[in-house]
C-alpha cells in the first residue's frame, strides 16, 4: 500500500531522516515510535508531501489523509463546514451528498450534535474526532495521524484506540500513527517501527512479544 524507499531529509545541514525504508501493508495500523525529535512527524510530513525529500521516494497507491497533532481545524468555520468545504470545492454538484456524508461521519464518531459548533466550543477529544472526520471525508486509503493522543487523559486515549480501530475496520483504511506513547502504540498497531536519531532502529510485530513496550524501550 505504502512504500517508503531510501528517504533522507535534512534541515539546514542537520540530518533529520536517514535512509528510511518501510513497507506498510494495506489496511494495517502502523505505529511510528521514538523519542521526541527522532523524526516521526517529519517522516509523516514527507509521506504527505509537506516536505520536499532530499533523496528517496514515497509510493502510495491511493489517497492520503492527514490528521495534525494540533488538529488545525479552521476556526472561522463550523464543524460541518470544516468537513464539507474541501469536498464541495472539488465537486460543487454533490454538496448535499457531502453534507450527508459529513453528518454520517459525525454520527459514527458520536459528535453529531456538534455539527453547527465552532472549533473553539469543542473539547480536545471532540476536536480530535472532527479532525479525524475531516481526514476521512476524502475517503483516503491511507490516514496519517501525528501524535493523536498527545495531551489526552488515559480514558480519552482508550477511546482513541477504539475509535481508530473501528475506523480501520469500517473504512478499510491504512493508518500510520506517529506517537511517543509506546503503551498506546502497542495496543493499536499491527506493526511498530522505532526511529532513533532519524534512522530506523527496529520494525516489529508487537503481538510476537510478551512485553513489547519493554522490548521497544531497549532501543530508545
Amino acid at each position: 500500500m505504502l512504500e517508503i524507499h531510501n528517504i533522507c531529509k535534512s534541515f539546514r545541514g542537520v540530518k533529520v531522516l536517514e535512509t528510511i525504508h518501510l513497507h506498510i501493508e494495506k489496511s494495517a495500523i502502523f505505529g511510528l515510535a521514538g523519542p521526541s525529535g527522532c523524526g516521526k512527524s517529519t517522516l509523516l510530513r514527507c509521506i504527505q508531501g509537506l516536505e520536499t525529500l532530499d533523496q528517496g521516494t514515497v509510493n502510495c497507491r491511493g489517497r492520503i489523509g492527514f490528521m495534525f497533532q494540533d488538529f488545525q481545524l479552521f476556526p472561522h468555520m463550523t464543524v460541518l463546514q470544516n468537513l464539507t468545504y474541501a469536498p464541495d470545492l472539488k465537486d460543487k454538484d454533490k454538496k448535499a451528498e457531502h453534507r450527508r456524508q459529513a453528518e454520517s461521519l459525525l454520527r459514527d464518531l458520536s459528535i453529531e450534535f456538534k455539527g453547527d459548533a465552532y472549533p473553539k466550543a469543542l473539547s480536545g477529544g471532540q476536536k480530535q474526532r472532527v479532525a479525524l472526520a475531516r481526514g476521512l471525508m476524502a475517503n483516503p486509503d491511507v490516514l496519517l495521524c501525528d501524535e493523536p493522543t498527545s495531551g489526552l487523559d488515559v480514558s480519552t486515549t482508550m477511546d482513541v484506540v477504539a475509535l481508530l480501530k473501528s475506523i480501520n475496520k469500517q473504512f478499510a483504511v491504512t493508518i500510520v500513527i506517529a506517537s511517543h506513547d509506546l503503551d498506546f502504540l502497542t495496543k493499536i498497531s499491527d506493526r511498530i517501527a522505532l526511529l532513533k536519531n532519524g534512522a530506523l532502529a527496529i520494525n516489529i510485530d508487537p503481538k510476537q512479544y510478551a512485553d513489547p513496550v519493554d522490548f521497544l524501550k531497549r532501543y530508545y
Partner: peptide, 18 residues
C-alpha cells in the same frame, strides 16, 4: 496564523486562490 493552517489547506488539496 499557525503554519498548520496553510498545511491543512494543502493536505485537503484546496487550490491556492480559495
Amino acid at each position: 496564523l499557525p503554519q498548520g493552517q496553510f498545511e491543512a489547506a494543502k493536505t485537503l488539496e484546496i487550490p491556492t486562490f480559495y
